[in-house]
């Protein structure tokens, strides 16, 4: 097996692919979250921003394609690694302790799955607009307020953000290890960056459904 094939065929290769595709998504959620905060400025602000994003088609579709590709390989790599990991220990321990690993790290799989479910629903609801009868392609703000004010939808969003927080908390730290940042000098920096991202992004996102649920945004 040569080059690319061998690389993606190996556990480390897959892992590196996950890290890179992960970064793409990390970048996206940071931007996306910031964009969402415009909702506080007012309906027009976020709507204009959305309009601007959709105005330049190359940018729009370029990003969408990049995101989809990244997500597909990310999930494929994650899935095949998990399969491998399951096979690698046919007989389970009667007693096993996890003194070192974080809950977040062990929740990557299920957290990821939850994120996937969320994404699919999320896009159908707010981008494609097939979930609810009333959907406006221009009034993003209106969509948000009308949908998320339903308590269980809002709650679902909040739960997804918890999953995201966990995923980022381990993921962003883990990325550095995966791409081979060895210098111990940066060990603490890695942890800090990951923790910050894992707090700021989900909280930023979550603030909106919360604001809507508590009627601060209408």
């Amino acid at each position: 097996m040569t080059g690319v094939g061998r690389f993606y065929g190996s556990t480390i290769g897959k892992k590196i692919v996950m890290a890179v595709s992960g970064v793409v998504w990390v970048g996206y959620v940071v931007v996306h979250m910031s964009g969402n905060l415009l909702a506080y400025v007012g309906p027009s602000a976020i709507n204009d921003w959305a309009a601007f994003l959709k105005s330049t088609l190359p940018l729009l579709w370029g990003t969408r394609i990049l995101l989809v590709v990244a997500l597909v390989v990310h999930i494929h790599a994650a899935y095949s690694l998990k399969q491998l990991d399951r096979l690698s220990r046919p007989v389970e321990y009667a007693k096993l302790q996890h003194p070192a690993s974080t809950l977040a790290s062990r929740a990557m799989g299920w957290g990821g799955v939850l994120l996937l479910v969320f994404l699919v629903y999320h896009i159908l609801e707010l981008t494609v607009g097939v979930v609810h009868p009333a959907f406006s392609h221009t009034d993003v703000y209106g969509n948000l307020v009308s949908y998320l004010s339903t308590w269980w939808i809002g709650l679902f969003y909040l739960v997804a953000m918890v999953a995201l927080a966990g995923h980022l908390y381990h993921g962003v730290w883990s990325m550095f290890q995966t791409v081979g940042v060895t210098n111990p000098r940066y060990d603490r920096l890695r942890r800090t960056v990951a923790t910050l991202v894992a707090i700021v992004v989900p909280v930023g996102f979550a603030s909106i459904p919360l604001a809507i649920l508590f009627g601060l945004m209408r």
């Binding site: 990991d85 996890h98 290890q177 995966t178 791409v179």
Partner: peptide, 30 residues
């Protein structure tokens, strides 16, 4: 299996081999 960077190995290692070595292996491999 593959490595998810759990860090349990280092905690169990009687010689406390540092986790940095794993990052180095990843880099060399890349």
């Amino acid at each position: 299996g593959g490595c998810t960077n759990y860090g349990e190995c280092h905690a169990a290692c009687p010689k406390e081999i540092p986790l940095d070595t794993i990052a180095r292996l990843n880099r060399d491999y890349l």
